[in-house]
Design a protein around this nucleic acid. Structure first.
Lengths: 120, 120
DNA sequence: GCACAGTACCTTGCATCACAAAGTACCTGT
DNA sequence: ACAGGTACTTTGTGATGCAAGGTACTGTGC
């Protein structure tokens, strides 16, 4: 695994969680999601986002409506379904559990390095 | 994606980072890594760990030596190579960048929910 | 010396997601 | 009618965590 690939691998599962979070704020279309991800310093392009949105829709977590735009083609606005909200909460728990585990591992390494205690 | 699968997907890339971290503390064999992951509440079995160790070895981040055991078969003790240390630091940066991005997304959602401001 | 339990390590096909990049379609302005 | 901008679509690829059955070594008891 080189570092670019590590970045790709680390995003698996987490990108979906972020998308669900962004949509949970209220109805939103794809371009705004991309802007918000850019603000979060998580570069994503449409070719990644649209298949993800399709997958989430197919799983029942999202639904969308077409809205005419005043300046271009019509847009799909997405919202979470009730199941989607439940699923997002479950993913949030999963995310925090994982982040806690990683924090624990990092902290333990720092303790071991700073105290010179025997590695476990 | 159901939630079990989400957990699997979220571990992609991150499990490797944790393993590198654990090995960075000093020479260690597989069973101790599993124990440390269990302490971190990250359940992993040998069928997952050994292929990962092999991949890391093949990428040049790890090396190992066989050590006789006083109570069972010989054991492979792993250490990071110099390249492995560099790679682990790069992965740590990647992890923190990703965690920061996720924190940002979560925080923004909470702000929007608590203030009732217009979703982006 | 052999059988068995415990321990250590190995293997391989599968499921799944992020990705890339080329594609189609609609709307507006000229 | 056409070009540019915007929105959405598609599909094969690469890579990792996983499961679960496998092999091999050591110590113990008979």
């Amino acid at each position: 695994m080189n570092i670019e690939n590590a970045q790709v691998q680390m995003r698996k599962g987490i990108l979906e969680f972020c998308i669900l979070h962004i949509i949970s704020r209220g109805e939103v279309y794809a371009s705004d999601m991309l802007d918000e991800l850019t603000s979060a310093r998580m570069m994503v392009v449409e070719g990644t986002l649209y298949p993800l949105l399709t997958r989430l829709k197919n799983s029942g977590w999202l639904e969308y409506k077409w809205v005419e735009s005043s300046s271009g083609p019509p847009r799909k606005y997405y919202v979470l379904t009730e199941e989607g909200k439940v699923f997002m909460e479950a993913m949030e728990t999963t995310w925090f559990d994982l982040a806690d585990s990683v924090s624990y591992v990092i902290k333990r390494t720092e303790e071991i390095r700073s105290k010179g205690v025997q590695p476990s």
